[in-house]
């Protein structure tokens, strides 16, 4: 601000005019909800009618007690570890895809902000930076707009049944999600340290290492661990299309109406997810 000191009068600022937008938005959301409810023919009362009640009770009766025979439990050891491997390797591949793409898709690394302030008045140089940035964002959108079980379906066709298609499916679709979220976290860093690092003559990669990564590390770790937790859940769904693990056993048990085995499997999945949750909380405490 220059030369406005005296013109900055002492009168109290007038109240900003009322904005219409929030009301419009709320109205639109309400209308959308009602229309969706109608279109999807939601009838929650169906669950409480005699027919629904009977089916629920039958399912619950069949589901207990959980199957705990040592034969069955021994048989589950292999699928159990398969699920763990699928989720761990899938998440590892997702990080390997998401981290580099996320860095390229962060606008303040690619082409905006203080690191590119000297491009003012150099439209060609700026454009040359926007093109790869936009291309990476497009790739990330494609990766995550295709659901993981569709990926799994395609990979089962490509490499056959078993854990490998599950790993690849999680790797690709979660790689897209991680890349997008990483880039958004990176875009939220404080700019002042970046400016100072750049002023020492540091290159782009060095600014990423010393300026960006230390600032985003806790959020990166936290979100990646959350995705690992999701991967365990996802591996159950992926089992349904033949990608191995506990999910495949879940699918078999349901198809055979072995609801007590379903209970056991769901219980094991619950323990796994809770374990990962505990582990990630412990890691966050150490790193933040």
């Amino acid at each position: 601000m220059i030369a406005t000191a005296s013109s900055r009068a002492l009168a109290a600022p007038s109240r900003p005019e009322r904005r219409l937008f929030p009301y419009l938005l709320a109205g639109c959301l309400a209308v959308t909800f009602v229309l969706s409810w109608r279109a999807a023919q939601v009838r929650p009362l169906l669950l409480l009618q005699a027919e629904g009640r009977r089916n629920i009770l039958k399912f619950l009766a069949g589901a207990s007690p959980p199957a705990l025979s040592s034969d069955f439990l021994q048989f589950l050891i292999r699928p159990f570890f398969e699920t763990v491997w699928i989720s761990v390797l899938g998440t590892a591949i997702a990080v390997a895809i998401g981290l580099p793409l996320g860095l390229l898709a962060a606008s303040n690394i690619a082409w905006t902000g203080i690191l590119h302030a000297t491009d003012a008045g150099a439209p060609v140089r700026r454009a040359a930076k926007i093109v790869p940035y936009a291309a990476v964002r497009l790739v990330l959108s494609v990766f995550r707009s295709i659901p993981e079980y569709v990926w799994a379906f395609m990979f089962v066709r490509a490499v056959g049944l078993g854990p490998v298609p599950g790993i690849l499916a999680i790797g690709v679709s979660y790689g897209g999600m991680l890349g997008k979220v990483y880039s958004e976290i990176l875009e939220g860093v404080s700019e002042q340290p970046l400016e100072a690092l750049q002023a020492t003559g540091a290159g782009r990669l060095q600014i990423v290492l010393y300026g960006f990564l230390p600032q985003v590390l806790p959020q990166f770790v936290s979100y990646t661990l959350y995705r690992w937790e999701c991967a365990i859940r996802a591996s159950a769904i992926l089992g349904f299309v033949g990608a191995g693990g506990l999910g495949q056993q879940l699918e078999v048990a349901m198809r055979m109406f072995q609801f007590n085995e379903v209970t056991t499997l769901v219980g094991i999945l619950f323990v796994l997810v809770a374990g990962v949750d505990w582990l990630s909380a412990a890691m966050r405490r150490r790193i933040v």
């Binding site: 000297t118 140089r125 002042q192 340290p193 002023a199 020492t200 003559g201 010393y210 230390p214 600032q215």
Partner: peptide, 25 residues
């Protein structure tokens, strides 16, 4: 621009009012 710009920046040291360090390092 490019490496010539970085080389010249290296010969200039900057000190700011605040918040110029990376707090978590």
């Amino acid at each position: 621009h490019g490496s010539a710009l970085r080389d010249l920046r290296r010969r200039i040291g900057s000190i700011y009012q605040q918040h110029n360090l990376v707090p978590r390092l």
